[in-house]
Design a protein around this nucleic acid. Structure first.
Ligand SMILES: [Mn+2]
Ligand SMILES: [Mn+2]
Ligand SMILES: [Zn+2]
Ligand SMILES: [Zn+2]
Lengths: 142, 142
DNA sequence: CATAAAATGATAATAATAATCATTCTCAAG
DNA sequence: CTTGAGAATGATTATTATTATCATTTTATG
């Protein structure tokens, strides 16, 4: 566990926003100004292989990382790209159900909800009053 | 509806393998040898905006396209990357359930099963007999 | 200390997709 | 049938996220 890896892990564990690799890079750079982006990618990969973090393959172009290890689903705001945790029990029954219905050996599933986050809901209502906020393309929040 | 767009649509409608853009390109090129890859991307985008095909944002690095318009889920073989249709009713109740549990306005969800396809199941059993098949990286089947 | 293995930072490479642009096609109006 | 505007094409370049390479540095271990 190098200094770099330790700090990447720490920053991820106190960040509940499911940051992308480049966001992690920006945060880590505040403590290690000379760290390389490649080192961040490399260590995010290693940490997720070791089971210390989770690599999320959600929709959007960029992968996201999660310091919370418990199994849970996510919601994505289709307007701003925010990812939030969902407190819904894991639907293992789905896998069993499908196992009987198809010829694949089912080992799991990936479920992601899509919606409009509270902030974007509010902005939508006052859209005529407030000036159009720069639309953050989902998956490219920096 | 240009000749190119028509043929792209036709090829997709008779292909149940959820091909990637580059696979569509290869197939279409058999009928239009001078078509450009850019034209394929452009038309797949337009056709999906028009609701004539579906653009699938599944896991893996490449987008996939589906000529079947009815709502359905998919299974991905984690070994070979094959995508198959799943005949399970759409779980709209999940969205309503989550709507009451969180502060997002839920508009839908994305569900993808992961498993081992019949062919890979068979290969696994005879792994000691047959020589190791070139592992097709998921998302890069050409 | 020696020294082998692992990790780093800098940089280049890859791969999928999107953008650009001059040329060609389409098709309704005259 | 011409014609001219707008759409679409093929060729090419650009973008973006991620991975690979590699010389140098760090780390762990006897
Ligand atoms: Mn989470
Ligand atoms: Mn399908
Ligand atoms: Zn939002
Ligand atoms: Zn398979």
């Amino acid at each position: 566990m190098t200094r770099q890896r330790q700090i990447i892990l720490e920053e991820l564990q106190k960040d509940y926003s499911h940051p992308t690799a480049s966001v992690v890079y920006l945060k880590v750079r505040r403590r290690l100004p000379h760290i390389s982006l490649g080192t961040v990618y490399r260590n995010l990969e290693i940490l997720s292989e070791q089971g210390l973090i989770k690599k999320l393959e959600l929709s959007g172009t960029q992968k996201r990382f999660d310091g919370t290890l418990s199994e849970h689903y996510h919601v994505r705001c289709f307007k701003c790209g925010r990812i939030s945790d969902v407190s819904m029990e894991t639907l293992t029954a789905l896998d069993e159900k499908l196992s009987e219905m198809c010829d694949y050996e089912i080992i799991g599933h990936r479920l992601e909800f899509i919606g409009l986050c509270p902030k974007c809901k509010k902005n939508k209502k006052h859209a005529h009053k407030t000036k159009t906020t720069t639309p953050i393309s989902p998956g490219n929040i920096s």
